[in-house]
Design a binder for these strands. Structure first.
Lengths: 230, 230
DNA sequence: CTTTTTTATTGATATATATCAATCAAAATT
DNA sequence: AATTTTGATTGATATATATCAATAAAAAAG
């Protein structure tokens, strides 16, 4: 493949943000306990319930994180773009995965031995504090999510989903949506039929436009209002 | 008041779990940047939107943490018993509170200067790692909460609330409920009328009994089944 | 190119739960 | 003790959204 790609963490341009508090030796250590894996769309990176052995850093593609439910209703708790590591709280509690990670697009990820990372939490305070900041940001996102699914109606929920998708997940506008309607439903916590009806309504009102898999957001402020008032 | 109560963190029997990774000097430092405050039921400890200056450790009582919403619908994201500190992710992100903390019973809390705590995150790795473990446990709780409010029906939601209240918040069974029906509703993400109807149903089926403010759980397993199947 | 399968869309109906209103009980105030 | 206020309970109704079913469009397979 044509992607630039290093066998060495120190040279990997993709780690910038995530490992900025590491020195040369630390990166070397990580490097020696790391494998880079390529996943095809639809492939599972790790599955809910299994033990966690690796700290996973997405270097390319798009990953879907979802909680698996009985009666095949899933709940997407987040999407991940490079460069970012997947924070799995389960590692710090019972060393098991509490959600499933699946490649939504062609994805590459680095798997790092989790014990090496654990050592770093003890030896590198700056990294450790940065980590706390990152998971705190995620926690605030979960608060919003809980508010959204408890008090909002379908319009507010889908508005939240659209606001989340752009620019965080799809930086361009219009963007090519690599998720299906069921994914949008699992992300919004409603049914796919409701997603379709809401998107249609938004389109009729000139808030967005949809052409095949292309979505363009015309009126972000309107979406924010809809999100706020539920 | 008749409570035993020290002017000194090192002697305070209530800090055991939370500050177990601190040495004498560290506790002394905390001690000198600490005030102990007593709150009456209904008093606000800190309010959503305000800046955070203090790390708060509950030493007595019961605290309600809730997200304030428009059209006076609140959402209780958790209850706190001693001895525990309130993890406010906002501190690590924008240094503002993202929820309100209110004394639900007569409560005492220690307020510690947040910069002193921040120093400790850098100097004491064991404390820092313990902190990550604690917030990870909370994050897993939030996952459950999101699952609950997205996919479950009122019976499952109230079952979840009851399972949360006992034994975590009220260790005895039967327990004296210091929360009103609206609180149970805000905790379950439904209306108080629905809470009442569900509790009545549970009582009719012999799962629980209610006498005034006393609730007794007879059939915990039944509640778990109801929680699971939604 | 045709057929099969999957995904998206639309419409009709069912249902869970919120909303509204009234009553009852308990607590607080006078 | 009488009155006011607050919270709990019950019932009737409205409504949002899930469910079900049918069709259309797109993608995959033969």
């Amino acid at each position: 493949m044509a992607q630039e790609y290093h066998n060495n963490c120190s040279l990997c341009g993709r780690n910038s943000e995530v490992f900025k508090y590491m020195d040369k030796d630390e990166l070397k250590k990580i490097d020696s306990h790391r494998v880079s894996i390529r996943y095809k769309p639809g492939e599972i990176i790790f599955k809910q319930g299994t033990p966690c052995y690796n700290f996973i850093c997405i270097t390319q593609g798009l990953v879907k994180l979802y909680i698996e439910h009985q009666r095949n209703r899933n709940l997407i708790i987040g999407l991940m773009r490079p460069v970012n590591y997947i924070y799995e709280p389960g590692f710090f509690v019972d060393k098991h995965h509490h959600f499933t990670a699946l490649a939504a697009e062609e994805t590459t990820a680095c798997l790092i031995d989790i014990n090496v990372m654990k050592e770093l939490f003890f030896s590198n305070q700056a990294f450790s504090y940065d980590f706390i900041q990152r998971i705190s940001r995620q926690a605030l996102g979960l608060f919003d999510r809980i508010s959204s699914c408890t008090h909002k109606h379908v319009f507010g929920k889908v508005a939240d989903t659209l606001l989340y998708l752009h620019p965080k997940i799809y930086p361009e506008n219009p963007f090519y949506l690599s998720l299906c309607r069921q994914d949008l439903a699992d992300l919004s916590g409603i049914t796919k039929e409701s997603v379709i009806r809401v998107l249609k309504k938004f389109q009729e009102e000139g808030i967005i436009s949809i052409n095949g898999d292309q979505i363009e957001i015309f009126d972000r402020e309107r979406l924010e209002v809809i999100s706020d008032k539920g």
